[in-house]
């Protein structure tokens, strides 16, 4: 498996763990509004992550095979963030808006933590 594919799998795995924790929080704690907001944001953030991974892989493949590449899905990602906020504003009694915004940012936290760990592991391997 290529390192890029390994990174994709790792990030998706951590996002699934995080979603599972948020579902448990929404079901079993006294703050369902906050956890539902976090869950809504994290689900759309996961969609953003999946789309970004897929589009960038297709893009790299297209360059190697000397095909013309389509876009990298920026507009779709902005639209999905807008959709999350619209749902949160429409059903304000179920979703906490600040929690939705924090949920939308979970992907970036996962990417940065994964990058830091992966980089340190890679550097240790180089030193040996």
């Amino acid at each position: 498996m290529q390192p890029y594919d390994q990174m994709m799998t790792r990030q998706r795995k951590w996002m699934f763990y995080l979603l599972a924790i948020l579902v448990l929080g929404a079901g079993f704690t006294d703050y369902p509004r906050i956890f539902l907001g976090l869950l809504l944001g994290a689900v759309l953030s996961f969609y953003n992550l999946w789309l970004m991974q897929r589009k960038i892989k297709q893009f790299g493949q297209a360059i190697v095979e000397k095909r013309s590449a389509r876009g990298i899905g920026t507009f779709t990602r902005l639209a999905s963030a807008a959709l999350a906020v619209l749902i949160a504003l429409r059903f304000e009694e179920y979703f906490h808006i600040i929690a939705v915004v924090l949920g939308l940012m979970t992907t970036y936290v996962v990417i940065m933590i994964d990058f830091v760990f992966f980089k340190s592991r890679y550097l240790h391997r180089e030193e040996r």
Binding site: M7, M52, L78, V101, L104
Partner: peptide, 26 residues
């Protein structure tokens, strides 16, 4: 592979700010 990974992280960092902007705008 490495260039794709670097591009992925760069694109993710660049797009975090416009996503915040869209949220604030709405």
């Amino acid at each position: 592979g490495p260039l794709q990974t670097t591009m992925f992280i760069g694109v993710a960092l660049v797009e975090a700010i416009p996503i915040f902007a869209v949220v604030i705008a709405f």
